[in-house]
Design a protein around this nucleic acid. Structure first.
Length: 294
DNA sequence: GCGACAG
DNA sequence: ATCTTGTCGC
């Protein structure tokens, strides 16, 4: 997991203005379209993956489905928690690999680092990024995709924590948040059934190309180029009865993944819980490790 | 000045 | 995110 963009490694000592301008630079480097060596649609289907590789060869191209050694792509879930000291951040990573009907845990690592700055909406990656990169350094494998807790493109400068870390590592990444930071759902997100989604469009709170600069456009999907789809409200779980309900997740591209694919992948990892397996397991692992730290 | 905001 | 027991509902 080499750092491809040393200049983007989150530095908590930067001024607020420096942080924001760096986010604009990160957004310009970010790719909000699918750019993965494997077909994400086959992530949960071993038979389809084997078939795909048989017809396209073992090379890592867009038609591939498995790694060179024939094993499934590695998907990492990343989650943070904080130690009671209120002065240290703990980042936990769980790496999964599709196996049969479910997934195998390939590796679990964590790192604890000092907290340098307070939580500031929009600047989350500068608070938690250091711990995440420290945990990534503990990995012995290179994940092919990362799922982060927090936003990606659904961000004031289109550079949430999933985008920031994804671009820094130049790895495909997705942001999975429980609350909406900015943007507007194009439709009501109330009463969605499991598996359904509602697009989140950019609004005035989201800086567009004019302020971000001129490199990557949006390439979101069909619609107004000025107000692209920056993510989706994804109903990963829902109750049958009309009495109890679950709020949708807010999924957005981090890097090298489109909004639609990000939503597809999160749903592919839904296993009866609100959070997709990678993130859910990382969350549980973080709690486990945290308990040992006291 | 008011609003408003991931984890 | 964190501080926390019981408790409502499937």
């Amino acid at each position: 997991m080499p750092v491809h963009h040393p200049d983007f490694v989150p530095d908590p000592s930067l001024s607020r203005d420096e942080m924001e301008s760096q986010q604009r630079a990160i957004a310009r480097h970010a790719v909000f379209t699918d750019d993965l060596w494997f077909d994400p649609a086959l992530l949960g289907d071993p038979i389809a993956r084997a078939t795909a590789d048989a017809s396209s060869g073992p090379d890592k191209d867009a038609d591939s489905a498995n790694r060179d050694d024939g094993t499934a792509p590695l998907v990492a879930g990343v989650d943070q928690s904080f130690l009671l000291d209120q002065d240290r951040a703990l980042s936990a990573i769980v790496v999964l690999r599709s196996a049969g009907t479910g997934w195998d845990v390939v590796e679990q690592v964590h790192a604890v680092t000092p907290l340098e700055i307070p939580y500031i909406p929009g600047l989350l990656s500068f608070r938690e990024g250091g711990a995440i990169l420290a945990a990534v350094e503990e990995l012995s494998v290179e994940p092919d995709l990362y799922l982060f807790d927090g936003s990606g493109r659904i961000h004031f400068r289109q550079a949430g924590i999933a985008t920031h870390i994804g671009v820094t590592l130049d790895a495909p990444s997705i942001g999975v948040a429980k609350n909406l930071l900015c943007g507007d759902p194009v439709d009501s997100t109330e009463g969605l059934a499991a598996g359904e989604r509602v697009a989140i469009g950019a609004n005035a709170d989201v800086e567009g190309p004019a302020k971000l600069g001129t490199d990557e456009g949006d390439a979101g999907s069909a619609g107004d180029p000025d107000w692209p789809t920056i993510g989706y409200a994804v109903q990963s779980k829902q109750y049958d009865s009309p009495n109890r309900h679950v709020n949708p997740l807010l999924v957005s591209p981090g890097h090298r993944v489109s909004a639609a694919t990000a939503a597809d992948i999160v749903l592919a990892f839904a296993a009866g819980y609100k959070l997709p397996e990678p993130t859910r397991l990382a969350d549980a692992y973080a709690d486990e490790v945290k308990a040992e730290y006291r």
